[in-house]
Design a protein around this nucleic acid. Sequence first.
DNA 1: CATGAATGAGTATTCATTCAT
DNA 2: CATGAATGAATACTCATTCAT
Lengths: 215, 215, 215, 215
Amino acid sequence: MNLIVKPRRKPSQSRAWMTSGAIQDAFLLLVVEHGYEQVSIRDIATLAGVGLGTLYLYFPGKDSIAAVTVRSRLRRLAADTQAACATGVPRTLAETVHVLARVHVHTLLGEAAPWRALLVLERRITPPGVYRELYKAFVQVLRDACAVAIDWPAELDPERSALNAFAIIDALVKNALLVQDVCPDADELLHDVECAVNGYFQKALERSRAATASA
Amino acid sequence: MNLIVKPRRKPSQSRAWMTSGAIQDAFLLLVVEHGYEQVSIRDIATLAGVGLGTLYLYFPGKDSIAAVTVRSRLRRLAADTQAACATGVPRTLAETVHVLARVHVHTLLGEAAPWRALLVLERRITPPGVYRELYKAFVQVLRDACAVAIDWPAELDPERSALNAFAIIDALVKNALLVQDVCPDADELLHDVECAVNGYFQKALERSRAATASA
Amino acid sequence: MNLIVKPRRKPSQSRAWMTSGAIQDAFLLLVVEHGYEQVSIRDIATLAGVGLGTLYLYFPGKDSIAAVTVRSRLRRLAADTQAACATGVPRTLAETVHVLARVHVHTLLGEAAPWRALLVLERRITPPGVYRELYKAFVQVLRDACAVAIDWPAELDPERSALNAFAIIDALVKNALLVQDVCPDADELLHDVECAVNGYFQKALERSRAATASA
Amino acid sequence: MNLIVKPRRKPSQSRAWMTSGAIQDAFLLLVVEHGYEQVSIRDIATLAGVGLGTLYLYFPGKDSIAAVTVRSRLRRLAADTQAACATGVPRTLAETVHVLARVHVHTLLGEAAPWRALLVLERRITPPGVYRELYKAFVQVLRDACAVAIDWPAELDPERSALNAFAIIDALVKNALLVQDVCPDADELLHDVECAVNGYFQKALERSRAATASA
DNA sequence: CATGAATGAGTATTCATTCAT
DNA sequence: CATGAATGAATACTCATTCAT
């Protein structure tokens, strides 16, 4: 028989948001500067301006800080992307792709250094399950945005197309930040992304029609 | 390489090769089973059947084992890809893309489980610099392969095109292994990859010509 | 702010007594269940139904709670023992020993489980100084009780005899609670205790007289 | 098979014994000086002259060091006691008690300071189960020693008598070390112990015979 | 009087690495 | 070449305590 039920002590709401944010910011800053392994819990607490014990009121451990930091920022990016597509104006598929790509490219290249750090961190700490979950959140946004395009070709499978389209966008942008020696101009990158996505849609459509015709 | 085998001096080298391989295999096995963090140098040495000190004769440290394991396998993939394109037969760009994509897709999906483990590990441990280096090795292969296509369009920048093309191939294949719930059929995936790459080349060419014309 | 001065002055004291008791009870309960090390100040405060800071109004720290809990209970036992001997009726030494032993044996074996817990706790937390102090309190009671026995032999040193007598009583009772697999019957134990104490007195007297005679 | 017997160095065993002993000695020394809580693993390792990690090759943790230190010393005392009784010469019960008591008293008072420290430590760290186990080991020794006395009275239960006799010896000796302000002379203490034990045996016998006669 | 959010000192423990054999 | 006993640097985390409310 256990007489003690230990409840998770929880900080108050308004303060919680601030403190948690400060901790995440401090964490990301330190990771950028020194790398994940070299960042100690003490460093984070110090830079965040909170006590060591306080940090543990908000996060159960170091891994959790990393996970929340990555997830919150990527989810926010997904939300921003969705918001950018949410205008009631009817759009063609090419226009939709343009908007989607532009948000992605400009957001990340607009603050290249922190995003590069976040992406490196994400590779480092995100377990496969979370990776999949985050990925799919983006795919949902793309699928919904493309599906309402006025010229969406019925021949294409929305789910599969969106998956591939996002993979392409994501790959090219990560390419720019993580692989290329000198980060390319945002508009050049945007151009390539649009080429790739629109080219994929067009070619997929051609092949689909060819297959149907031959059948 | 030297085709003349001199058996007298080789035992140490062949032993070295064997031991190093055994260590890498043990390492990969343990990582798949327990995760990178949980694998200790001792575990690796024990499973590889070598002494603790012996391990340090072959690798300077734990990180090195991980790095070599990942690098050697990815470099071998790059080499296989290069070899597949190395036949003297002239080819069109589309044929080249087909060969490249097919090697990549079939190699990885042919042994999906170990490759998935390797890719997860690679995300986990590869530092940015090594990532870039490995990526570029693949880009070189693509660039060289495409550049000799009989219909390579002079308007396209080989380097940039190859970079984007490999990003697309890589993204779609990783997608299949790491994101999708059920790993797609290799031929379906190959189809998508070809659509995306060929579509990208085509659209890039169109835009390039349009830009030139308008100028 | 309440500017009206409340005439009652006592609530604080009765409240103080209640709260302190609740804290001690909670502490003892938790120690019995989880062991001293596992009990945190938070647990005690929670189970006692008081705030964390409130606890510090009654006790300066964790050790103090343990010390007070043990001391108050052992002092009460000493007081009860003293009270049992305090009747004005003249008694022989054997009768006195009987009363003393009976109180000790029946009190502890009457509620064996909690007393066992208390004795285990006492071993665990009582520092040497406090142990000595508590021990001497009991010795005082014994000495005073024996000294007024109508047949107290002048040859025996009261202090030393009482010390040994209490050591014997205490040892046999603790034996019963802490060592023996099955707690013996109270009357059997009482019999042994009386044998030992009376036997000690008798033998000590014999030797004392023999020594005097030979001198 | 290697038939050549290599002179196997046994640094492991002889070294193990030395190192373990050094650690225990260091531990006991530090506990005497600063108290159990204040002794850190680091201090122990430093004073023992071994590395921090080395300590963990011999003991799984701090508690283990304490437990082994206490148990090994108390078991050695029990073994010494047993050895002292092991002479083939027939003895009376009183002679046996004398030998037993003398070993106990002289051993502990002979090195009062370290034994006091050990007993304080024992109270502090020994869990009830271990306490019982150690206690019973001593009782065994007493029972076996008394049972072969040439005048052992058949009326007494050997187990119960030995339990009480040891409780008395133990109590008076601990008394001397832990309670009394000035440690008494060994011979005086021995006198008291013999009085108490012999008195107990005599009185128990009297009562037993009285009970039999009345029945 | 009562509270509990915030604090940070203090420590056990792991494990990569070395070097004597 | 091979070994593994010995090492100690490095760090996450707990929990008693305080003090502003």
